[in-house]
Amino acid sequence: MLMCLAIPAKIISLQGEKAQVDFGQGVLRDVNVSLVEAKQGDYVLVHAGYAIQVLEEKEALETLSLWSDVLAQAGQE
């Protein structure tokens, strides 16, 4: 396990501090969500069994569009 690694997962259900999350391809796991303000349907970053941050979809899309901007410039020059 990489100690600084945190993997995105989607919250399927929530019960107090525990949430069931989906890491994709049907890999489900219980994680502790006491360090974040998350709700059902959110993507969280999971590190060593605990969600440490909520992933912002808007920012994720912004990053991707920033990259395509850089590419568009590369194409022009």
């Binding site: 440490i52 912002e56 979809e57 912004e62």
Partner: peptide, 14 residues
């Protein structure tokens, strides 16, 4: 570069 995860103020609860 990692604004989809990193907020300037970090994780306040943590």
């Amino acid at each position: 570069e990692y604004s989809r995860v990193v907020k300037p103020e970090g994780n306040r609860k943590a």
